[in-house]
Design a protein around this nucleic acid. Structure first.
Lengths: 219, 219
DNA sequence: AAATAAAATTAGGTCAGCCTAATTTTATAC
DNA sequence: GTATAAAATTAGGCTGACCTAATTTTATTT
């Protein structure tokens, strides 16, 4: 059996190792979990004994294959529940995270596979994050930050790199939704702000900070 | 905040006091929760301090209004989730209990009210158990055990008084479902077995043990 | 390379929620 | 109404998952 705490550790180790590959440091984990670093050291050692992670003193933790499998399952569940909450119960994309954080720990393979089917086997959640399949495989991710694009490109908004409610609400307020077509009219050289035309209609300007968190594919 | 343990205690105290009204004994709670009686005594005292229950030494526990409210909310959630599992994900009625036991602890008023609406505000779960509304009120229950009926009555199967998988599977195997019309052709005086005609077609005989756990309303 | 700062670890402690064993209280039988 | 059985409680302990404070290790600066 895997405890709630273990599930949260595994999930966060996975997410942190996704960003900065290599071992996940004690402090970054402590920060992500909002738990004291001393507690993290302790817990990670126990997880190493259970072969969920490998741990090297003062270097950090890395998921084993077994640990990664569990982490991916939790992420799969979280994102499937988010799809359900938004598509079926009409929650907004900035309202679903806390609920999905609870639902992701519900343990039933049958449930999750039926939910997946019921939702039509979605490959991405409402924020554009990819959903691993039952075997833990993702579809190939072709997205990149809008910031990496050049002027005059036509792209499609498919996800966000920042999941804070404030950012999601900012996008909503600016009427920017996943699926929107964006045309880059101009990039201001001085501050890298992007002058966009949205869905061939509205013109808007967004700062570098915003643009780096908008994920797109070329259209 | 209410812990998982507290929620389970409250739910079980409610259910036990429903059956045998009056204070819930330590041993019955211990039995229901599969927890040592000494632990129950301890825990119930702490809950009394928090005003979730009243507790009298060696007599047992009773829910306060506050405790009852929490218990009813958990029962509401459990039963709504069961409806969802059966109606939307096509689970069978003997498969949903363990999953609903987990889902009932997910905490979000918005979620539960939206789920309720999405399901069409059901008043009973797949076993015929009534679902309290958001205020904790039940619709009036007019059901009684089939065993209390007399010969030649026409009744409708609306619920079960026993929720074990073996009983549910027994009914399924005998093709008996909620909503079925039952006509009591004869009651065997010797052993009180019931000779039924189901939906005006199939004839079947059921023992007293079965019949006392079938809840019906007069048709 | 020594000094300092930051990160990680060790040692010792707390609290929730359980346990067993021993004792006390309540109920039941003779 | 005393003996016995059953139920409940008390006392003391354990484990998981956290904490703080002190120490050690690693990284950074000069």
């Amino acid at each position: 059996m895997i405890s709630l705490a273990e599930e949260n550790y595994l999930k966060n180790i996975y997410k942190l190792s996704e960003k900065n590959s290599g071992a996940v440091t004690t402090s970054s984990l402590a920060d992500a979990l909002q738990i004291n670093a001393a507690s993290v050291t302790d817990f990670v050692k126990k997880m190493a004994e259970k072969k969920m992670v490998t741990y090297q003193k003062s270097k950090g933790a890395m998921l084993t294959e077994a640990g990664k499998k569990i982490a991916l399952k939790i992420i799969r569940k979280h994102r499937l529940w988010e799809v359900w909450l938004v598509n079926t119960l009409n929650f907004k994309w900035d309202e679903v995270h806390d609920i999905a954080e609870q639902l992701e720990h519900v343990n039933s393979d049958m449930l999750i596979e039926r939910l997946d089917n019921h939702l039509g086997n979605p490959t991405a959640d409402p924020h554009g994050d990819l959903i691993p399949d039952a075997k833990g495989k993702f579809i190939k991710d072709r997205s990149k930050p809008l910031l990496k694009c050049i002027a005059k490109q036509k792209v499609k908004f498919i996800g966000v790199a920042e999941h804070s409610n404030s950012f999601l609400q900012f996008l909503t307020k600016n009427n920017l939704k996943i699926g929107d077509e964006l045309f880059i009219e101009r990039i201001e050289a001085y501050d890298q702000s992007f002058h966009l035309k949205i869905n061939k209609k509205t013109k808007k300007v967004f700062s570098k900070e915003v643009v780096k968190n908008i994920l797109i594919v070329l259209a």
